[in-house]
Nucleic acid binder design. Structure first.
Lengths: 335, 335
DNA sequence: CCTGCTTTCTACAACGTTGTAGGCAACGTT
DNA sequence: AACGTTGCCTACAACGTTGTAGAAAGCAGG
């Protein structure tokens, strides 16, 4: 059975509001009264009804994290950090999987979980700034690149810079025919566009040609897509000596395809990824990658949301950048 | 701004309750009235306040899924299936990460998210039947092995049978010195114990000795633990020709350690795992594993919860078993 | 002993929703 | 013409909580 403030109040011989005051840490309660109430709470194992509290206060203590897919390791790792960061604020995190489609994302953003959550941390793939503009402006923090200069707070990393840096690393190793895997022409592909830009920048800076034939598209960024893209690069005869994959799962797929083709990594082809997922630290060979500071991304997102909730909801949108670093591993380092 | 039934009612010129009836699909509403109300709902972009509805009805339409760690791929994949299965019932899933500790799990089970959720699907590591016995019995479905014959509904797979089968497969390939990685002595290690039992059964059935030195413990079941356990097996000099790892992440770590030791898989050592996570389909070599039917596990869990919510809450606990099959891949199949 | 202040507590209303009870037409049956 | 039945709708109360207003008791200062 479930007890209410009223039950506790009767047992302790005080009013309902006094129990509420004790629960909420109100100071002007006599110590012996407080003790009596706390005892009653313990005896009845009383827990506040969050729905009722929410109805009254307008806050639930729950925020949502919406990501395209949980079984993409990057998002699972990110979720872990967001849950941890939110715990510091006493928040529970409701994790929502959008699937990445534009319509599904619109539903989530417009608040299918309406009235249950105080705010939303949202990692959209397909959503555009216009989609967001028409919405109910529940406090929201966006992760990633898609909705540039939209109406909401934003945590990003410098995709162009990171892509340029890791491509330059490959060039510095003496590689000259550097392929890229993961380009996308769809509006969903904002990260892809930025990483491609960084890749092209690095080539240009080194005086290398940008060769369209070395750039392989990937409809999604799963292992299977990386493997397929790598295979098509190999059969097309362009003979790359390095591959920059736009995320780690693509890179793991590419490693697989190279292995099947009998090519050695890094001797014949160097491979780099992006995201620093745990798999890449144990793959054969281990994977050189761009490591965004996920803990920092999560913390910044939660802090932005907290400020938005407590402070001025109409203040203009802020954009914060999280750091990254290169993780050099076996897939580029000759033994 | 956010609108209420009252706003819609005023706009449509009807009572609040009539709007509520339209929203809830009550039949006795004149078509023209219904149309007027629906128009007003659309114009105001009205959404019901779930907290208020819950307060009144005692249902939120939200269930929680509590797992030890989201960045263990098995749980992430499971989460995906649970979210999908729950959607069929119109439920939103709140995903909770317990961390796997006994105290944290007790907090979750006793309902830190109290009153916000209708029920709980729970994959405990450390919790004991006694822990659960004292709790508030919110409808709960348990996944996995730990709390055998506890008070709650339960979805399991036949760990002993699956472990026996995959070990027998190794024996059938002619392997004789078969190591096991992942044993645990702690109370958390229920799955470990069952899989070890199946392993020992298979050895006995084939007339092979159970050799303590071939069984390596793993404090957790991460890649790093698998790699460490494999290294210690190799340095101990027991020279296994096959390894049964109690889950896939352990196996991926073991593959890594074998690679570092210069041993070939499967030529020198065959490796098998358990869980069929996506990584194992792309690792080098790809991983032979026990593939539990995760979609079925998720569906059974959600259905059990639905029955518990709608039906008799005091009916005795049920235990359902989900199927599994062996996935034979490169880590055991000679080319 | 009165006044004004502080501390401690209580009664009441309200948050947005839905179940219950009931009213009023319109209809068909006697 | 009176009656019961049905369809459609409304008023009210209640779910459990907390903010507001204010009462009662204690205290200090005159």
């Amino acid at each position: 059975m479930r007890h209410r403030l009223k039950d506790v109040a009767e047992r302790a011989g005080v009013s309902v509001k006094t129990v509420s005051n004790v629960v909420n840490g109100y100071v002007h309660v006599r110590p012996d009264t407080r003790a009596r109430v706390e005892e009653a709470i313990a005896e009845l194992n009383y827990r506040p009804n969050l729905s009722a509290r929410h109805l009254r206060k307008g806050r639930t203590g729950v925020i949502a994290l919406a990501v395209p897919e949980l079984d993409i390791p990057y998002f699972a790792e990110l979720a872990r950090y967001v849950v941890a960061a939110a715990a510091d604020f006493g928040w529970t995190v409701l994790i929502d999987q959008t699937g990445g489609g534009r319509e599904q994302e619109r539903v989530v953003a417009s608040g299918i979980t309406d009235h249950l959550i105080d705010g939303l941390i949202f990692s959209p793939l397909a959503l555009t700034a216009e989609d967001l503009a028409g919405l109910d402006n529940r406090p929201m923090v966006l992760l990633g690149e898609r909705v540039d200069h939209g109406p909401a707070d934003h945590v990003v990393i410098d995709n162009v810079g990171a892509a340029r840096e890791i491509t330059s690393h490959l060039i510095g190793l003496g590689r000259r025919r550097i392929a890229a895997i993961g380009s996308q022409r769809t509006p969903e592909g904002a990260s892809a566009r930025l990483r491609l830009t960084g890749y092209a920048d690095a080539l240009r800076a080194a005086g290398l040609d940008y060769d369209e034939a070395l750039v392989a598209p990937a409809p999604a960024w799963h292992r299977a897509d990386g493997a397929a893209a790598m295979r098509s690069l190999l059969t097309s005869g362009v003979r790359p000596d390095a591959v920059f994959c736009f995320n780690d799962t693509l890179a793991l797929g590419a490693l697989r395809a190279l292995h099947e083709a009998g090519l050695r990594v890094p001797e014949d082809v160097a491979v780099v990824g992006f995201d620093d997922i745990e798999d890449g630290r144990f793959s054969i060979p281990t994977l050189t990658t761009v490591a965004p500071d996920k803990a920092q991304i999560a913390r910044l997102a939660v802090e932005l949301l907290a400020e938005r909730l407590d402070g001025d909801r109409t203040a203009s949108a802020r954009e914060l950048s999280a750091p990254y670093r290169l993780e050099l591993r076996e897939s580029t380092q000759l033994p």
